[in-house]
């Protein structure tokens, strides 16, 4: 059952796991950007995990989005908060997230993040991770969803590794980005893995 306390537990798990991965993410980001992605992500989830969540799961996701954005207003931070917010809007007024809703929520997050970041699928960004997860979750049983999402997020990193970045600061590196994991996709893999640590 995914109620507000399950969301809190998931956020703690992600906060712990991304804190461990912080250095790895910073160095991946340092190769293509300003090298603070690990801090952005781990700080954002730490703040969200410490926030008291209301019983309304929509408002709980909203509180997480706000907390995340408060400490992490880089573009990646704002995009993740946008994703949380899109899901929050759909769940407002409920006390539990139905498993069937999950692929829908991931897809809604993906669409809202695409609109805000003005990005397209295939640009080698976190949007591709969300898209891969939304697709993989279609028809997955509730028990297998976390593993399915982790596999999809990991596959996205590998699938895009040998393509150039086409959006954001990493785009400036063009051909040099070929062979490197996209830092945003890698961060999202660590985030999804964090669900197992909750």
């Amino acid at each position: 059952m995914i109620d507000s306390s399950a969301i809190a537990k998931a956020l703690s798990g992600i906060a712990a796991h991304t804190a461990t991965a912080s250095e790895e993410l910073c160095s991946a980001d340092g190769a293509l950007g300003d090298g603070d992605l690990g801090i952005t992500v781990s700080k954002g989830f730490a703040e969200a995990a410490e926030t008291e969540l209301p019983d309304d799961v929509g408002m709980a996701l909203f509180a997480a989005a706000k907390a995340f954005q408060r400490v992490s207003s880089s573009s990646y931070g704002t995009l993740l908060a946008t994703g949380f917010m899109a899901a929050a809007k759909l769940e407002k007024g409920k006390t539990e997230i139905a498993p069937d809703d999950i692929p829908v929520l991931v897809a809604a997050a993906r669409d809202a993040m695409m609109a805000r970041g003005k990005g397209n699928l295939g640009d080698k960004t976190v949007l591709d991770s969300l898209d891969a997860i939304a697709e993989a979750l279609e028809g997955a049983t509730p028990e297998t969803m976390v593993d399915t999402a982790i596999t999809a997020a990991g596959d996205a990193v590998e699938q895009f590794r040998n393509q150039p970045n086409r959006l954001g600061r990493a785009r400036m590196f063009g051909e040099k980005s070929i062979g490197l994991a996209d830092p945003g996709q890698l961060a999202f893999l660590r985030i999804v893995e964090g669900l197992k640590h909750g």
């Binding site: 408002m59 909203f62 706000k66 954005q69 207003s73 573009s75 704002t78 908060a81 946008t82 917010m85 929050a88 809007k89 407002k92 805000r116």
Partner: peptide, 17 residues
């Protein structure tokens, strides 16, 4: 760019809350 992203987000927050 940064102002637009944040202000759009702020609009959603004010509406939601």
């Amino acid at each position: 760019g940064g102002d637009v992203m944040n202000f759009d987000m702020a609009g959603e927050m004010a509406e939601m809350e």
